[in-house]
């Protein structure tokens, strides 16, 4: 236990191991401990196939650890059913995937509004206004009514980030958000992510292969062969 001044982690993963059954069982993540604190800007690096994405899926409640526990705001999640986990994803977590994963038939604006509509907290006008505000913040308000197919890779990635922010999540998990962007666009995206932590106190965890980008995080987590080699837990109890 650290001192009482230490804040409650937003996301916490304890002694988690994820093994995929198959003809040859594969261990994606081994005995990982990690805690994400409010306002933290965390980078995750590691060789290809080391388990970075797998770790992010566990943190994002998209996947379940075979052994271990994931806590959201101090609450264990292993006992929750699929619907309850979906609800947490919707309200508290934002995901940006390496490939943008937008709905192709919907405009950028509609894609950003999607999680808001699913949550149903705001009325339609408020949703639209908020989505436009986020798009504006990311510098793509002008493209709000275009469909993903009419946008460049960097624009799509920013729409995906906007969508991840839709319900004002406490943590945004981004898997190689700059993966297929040029240096300038990568720089832009990184600045956007950085600003999101600074301004709103939410935490960002992003996976990247670019060590110079990773170096600009508050904390650098390095994963090798499914284990955290460096930059480990901020605080893990139990």
């Amino acid at each position: 236990m650290t001192g009482p001044a230490s804040p409650q982690p937003l996301l916490e993963i304890r002694h988690a191991t994820r093994i995929i059954d198959g003809e040859v069982p594969t261990t994606l993540v081994r005995e990982v401990d990690l805690a994400i604190l409010p306002g933290e800007f965390v980078s995750v690096t590691g060789p290809s196939g080391s388990g970075k994405s797998s770790l992010l899926y566990l943190l994002g409640l998209l996947d379940l650890p075979t052994v271990g526990e994931v806590l959201v705001a101090g609450e264990p999640t292993s006992g929750l059913d699929e619907d309850a986990r979906a609800k947490i994803r919707l309200t508290h977590l934002g995901f940006v995937f390496q490939f943008h994963f937008l709905l192709p038939e919907f405009t950028a604006l509609a894609n950003v509004m999607l999680p808001m509509r699913a949550l149903g907290k705001l009325d339609e006008d408020e949703q639209r206004a908020r989505a436009m505000a986020i798009l504006d913040q990311l510098g793509i308000a002008a493209h709000a009514l275009k469909r993903p197919g009419q946008l460049s890779g960097g624009q799509r990635q920013r729409v995906a980030i906007a969508r991840a922010l839709a319900n004002d999540p406490m943590v945004v998990l981004a898997d190689e958000p700059t993966g297929n962007l040029d240096t300038a666009s990568s720089e832009q995206v990184l600045q956007i992510l950085r600003r999101l932590t600074d301004e709103q106190g939410r935490a960002i965890v992003f996976v990247t292969h670019d060590l110079s980008l990773a170096a600009r995080a508050d904390r650098q987590v390095r994963i090798v062969d499914g284990r955290i080699a460096d930059g480990g837990p901020s605080r893990v109890d139990g």
């Binding site: 994002g60 998209l62 699929e82 619907d83 979906a86 609800k87 947490i88 994803r89 919707l90 309200t91 977590l93 995901f95 995937f97 994963f101 937008l102 709905l103 192709p104 999607l114 999680p115 699913a118 949550l119 969508r163």
Partner: peptide
């Protein structure tokens, strides 16, 4: 299938 995965990852429930 991909869209379904997106929706579910965003937090759509099975019944939705």
């Amino acid at each position: 299938t991909r869209d379904i995965a997106i929706l579910k990852s965003l937090g759509f429930q099975e019944r939705q």
